[in-house]
Simulated assay, not measured.
Amino acid sequence: MQQFIDAAPGIRLWTEQRGAADTEPLLLVMGAQASGIGWPEPLVDALAAHHRVIRYDHRDTGRSTWPFEERPYRIADLADDVIAVLDGLGIDRAHIVGMSLGGMLAQMVLADHPDRLLSATLISTSALSSTPYTRPDGGTVPADELPGIAPELLELWARPVEDHGRAAEVQRQIEHCRVLAGGQLPFDTDSFRTLAQRVIEHTGHHRTSTAHGRAEHDGMLRTDQLATTEVPSLVICAPADPVFPPPHPQHLAQCVRGASLVEITGMGHALPPAVLKPLATAILSHTGAARG
């Protein structure tokens, strides 16, 4: 079922629900500049066998409002949108699964609205905490000195995005996903081509936005709140992630009180078919345990 939610004055967010209405809600929050269609269908279906699954388009993605050029917003506003989606669908509490920027938004909700969450799963993201990372040998690393984004990816992001037509945009997205995937698993070109085409068809055009990269991001740290949370939390470690490489996931698991850590073999900063089954298994094991 598809539905639009009024998240703020002039802001409408596209949402989709799948699964039985009487099961516990599970909200999927995608990364920067990624629409809800970025969650692969087999993963959504696997989760929807046990949950009322909700995915949605961020502002400036998919079928939601694209307001940034006229009305710039903050990353914090994107976190408020998470609560607006729950409110708009009449959901008091939900499991939340966030990837990349979505994982940061999930941390902000975890910190600011713990009463709205049944559990949190954080995928391929970085801790919103200034707590140092404690290495296995007992040494510490300041949070701001953890490994950075892979140079190949930074070079790709530095290139201007030019409109050379739909086919060229699909190819650009495929090559972007190839770098994001990290190289430990064989790259499934066909699945990422299908995904890129589905996103464009869903959106209705092939234009891209850089709004989330330009949005004000000050005030995102939640060090104390994450260290004292009682929300059951799971961190997914993607060993091939070129955006937040290890030990980012290990650091995140240290920063979030009581968090468990599960590694998905070969996973990078993308969701190819090979990782979907183990990822669904990890998420459902966590939400099932949180249900008690």
Rank of each mutant, 00 (worst) to 15 (best):
A227C: 02
I96N: 05
E263H: 01
A7E: 09
L28P: 05
A127P: 09
V243H: 05
G139K: 15
T23S: 15
H217K: 15
T121V: 14
H286V: 04
A120G: 00
V109G: 02
L261Y: 08
W157L: 15
A76C: 10
G19W: 08
A46V: 12
H251G: 05
P246I: 01
H248N: 06
P246H: 00
L261C: 13
S233E: 00
T125W: 02
R59E: 09
R193Y: 01
I123L: 13
R93S: 10
I264H: 00
L118N: 14
G148L: 15
C237V: 08
A211G: 14
T189M: 14
A270S: 14
A289R: 14
L271F: 13
P9L: 08
I236M: 04
G38D: 07
L118K: 14
I11C: 03
G62S: 03
A150R: 08
C177E: 11
R116Y: 05
S64Q: 02
P246Y: 05
P114H: 11
D45L: 15
L101W: 06
L13M: 04
Q254C: 02
I75Q: 10
V44M: 12
V53Q: 08
T23G: 11
L261F: 08
Q225I: 06
R55T: 07
A21D: 12
L110N: 06
P272V: 05
S233K: 03
A7V: 04
E155C: 09
L195V: 09
Q33M: 14
E16H: 07
L252K: 10
Q254Y: 02
R93L: 11
T287D: 10
A211W: 13
G10V: 06
M220L: 15
T194D: 08
H217W: 14
G90M: 06
S129F: 00
A227M: 01
A49H: 06
R18G: 07
A8N: 03
A289P: 03
A106G: 10
G62I: 10
Q107D: 01
T65C: 07
A34I: 13
G288S: 11
R55H: 05
I91Q: 03
A84F: 05
Y133I: 11
L234C: 02
G204Q: 03
R135E: 09
E152S: 12
G98H: 06
D77T: 05
V109S: 07
H176E: 12
Q254E: 09
S129P: 01
D60C: 14
L117Y: 02
L146P: 01
E24I: 09
L284Q: 05
R52N: 08
P114C: 09
A127F: 06
Y56P: 03
L28G: 06
A215Y: 01
Q184D: 12
R135G: 07
Y56C: 00
D144K: 06
T121L: 14
D45V: 13
H164I: 04
P278N: 02
R74K: 14
G10K: 01
A84H: 05
A79G: 12
A48K: 00
G258D: 00
Q197H: 09
D241K: 15
